[in-house]
Structures are given as structure tokens and as C-alpha cells.
Amino acid sequence: MVRVDMKKLINEPGAVVDEMLDGMVAAYPEALARLDGTNVLVRADAPVEGKVGIVSGGGSGHEPTHAGYIGDGMLDGAAAGEVFTSPTADQLGEMIQACDAGEGVLCVVKNYEGDVMNFETGIELAEMESDVEVTYVVVDDDVAVEDSLYTSGRRGVCGTIFVHKAAGAKAAQGGDLAEVERVAQKVVDRVGTMGMALTSCTTPEKGEPTFDLPEDEIELGIGIHGEPGIERTEVMDADSVTEHLTERVLEDLELDAGARVATIVNGMGGTPQMELFVVNRRLQEILGERDIETWDAWVGDYMTSLDMAGCSITLLELDDELEELLSHPVETPALTVRDD
């Protein structure tokens, strides 16, 4: 028996990603398969004949992101890096090839230099080894990060789930690579997210909180990797937090009365659902006050940071096309939408 000195249900910290992936396949043996010798999960029936492949990936620790969204109507493959570390280029290359049925592959990449660089290299590798056609979109929905020439740009966070959903639906409906990419980019252009943390997370490797957060302070504008946020303030109540996050996203998206949105109140992994619903209550009130119509409201753990307590709020401005794509049925471990 290995003694672990932190409070986690793990064995060797170095084995956690490998064991998690096996545990996922054991939970969904008919839906998921692991590519031999890699940390890539794919649809058991990949590549799906006649369909554009959609793949994603990134560091582990964000479960159910990414592999939780593999399935009919969403992702064909997802690559898991070490905790909070992008997957490696060679595995991304293998995943791309495994998900190509001849119609090409779209990569959904979150805007982190590690992810972008490894995906770019992975795409090069896949193109060298086969004649797969590959494109990618970079999701950068985090409105907390200043977007200027002098930064790496905004981070990709929970808005990515909407990209998977819309692009996945388009692909399932027979869209070609260019159409699928257009839809993905459309979501990227219309989605914004802002997050906050009540506590830091603790990675299996480090075994202690990534940042110190005193009892009476919270972080605003955090990402999903245990990076400290843009601002630290005193503890606020749920309504004030919700107002702060929502205002920032609304400002960024420049949403006016009459707009129609889909929303996510996302938990960071250590937040009780009770609290997420308390946040959703105020979010929907604010939108109502501004005459913004919520077409659909998701509440839950969609893209987490291990055991961090906190939440993020995502708004996506809809049009008829996106609404139709979000309603398309989907069946994945983490998200199911049923036919009406």
C-alpha cells in the first residue's frame, strides 16, 4: 500500500491520469475506447463513416472535460494531458488520424500556448503521416483576461462546451469540414465566460494548494488551471459574486435587450450544486431585468479545476442556427440532450 500524504482518492500521483482513463472506459465500455499506448479516448465506433471528426484535448483535472463529451453529436476523440498540462503532440497526431473517416477533422483548442503549440505540432505530424485534412479553432472566451497585442490573449474556458456541442451537431447533421469549422468559430465569436474561486485547488503532484487564499478573500477572474485570478477581493455573498461575473460577461458581449442566450453556471469541482443553483437564480434574475431571454440554462460541473470551490458564468448569444444546433440530440457521459 502506498501512503499518500494528501487527502485524495488516488494511488501514485504519477498514475492518476492513466488510472482515470481506464476507469472511464470501465464506466462506458460500449461508448469509449482508449487508443493503445496513449492517453487518448475515442468513440468506440471511431472513425464514424461519412462524418467530419471533432476532437479536443487539454490537461487533465477538468473532468468531465474533455472525454466526458465524447459521443454521438459531440466529440469523436479527446486527448488527456497530465494534470493541467497539455497533451503531447504525438498523441494529438494519433488522435487526429484515428478520428478521420476521410471527411477531415476539426480540432477544438483552448487558448493556452501549450495547447496551441502541441496541437499545431500534432496537426503537422498527422498531415505528414496521412492525407487527413485538419483545421482548428482556438476558443478564447475568458473575458477576465485583457486581450491585447501584449498578452497571450484570452484563455479558453467553459464556453468550449458550447463549441463542442454546436460543432458536434453540425458534423452529426452531415456538415462538411468548412461548415463545421464555421459553426465552431461562430460560437467562439459569441461566447464569454468569467470565473471566480473561493479556494485554490490542489494538484496530485504538488499535494498542497496552488495558491494561498486567506479565509476572508476570494479570487476573481481565475482560469481553470489553478492560476491565481486577476483580482483578489474580500468575501462577497452569492448575489454580489453573480452580479460581478455577469456584468463583466454582458459588457464584453455587448448584449442588448431582446438578445437570446444560453447560459452555463459551471462548478469548479468542489462547489456543492446547491450553491450553483443559488447563483443561477440571481443570474436569471439579472438577465430578466435586462430583457435578455434565456433559451436554455445549464447548471453543473462542466469544466472543473480539480477540487477548487468556485464557479464560472458563461453566456452564448444565440441565433436560430445555434439554437437549432444546441437542441440537436446528443448522448455523452456528461451531457445528454434528448429528441423532443
Binding site: 494531458g81 498540462t85 503549440m117 505540432t121
Partner: peptide, 15 residues
Amino acid sequence: LVSAVGGASGPLYGG
């Protein structure tokens, strides 16, 4: 390094 590191430092160092 490229195939074992991941993250930003993987392609930077390894590549």
C-alpha cells in the same frame, strides 16, 4: 521531451 512533457515547455524545449 516533445512526447513526454506536454504543456508549453514540451514543444519549446523538445521541439
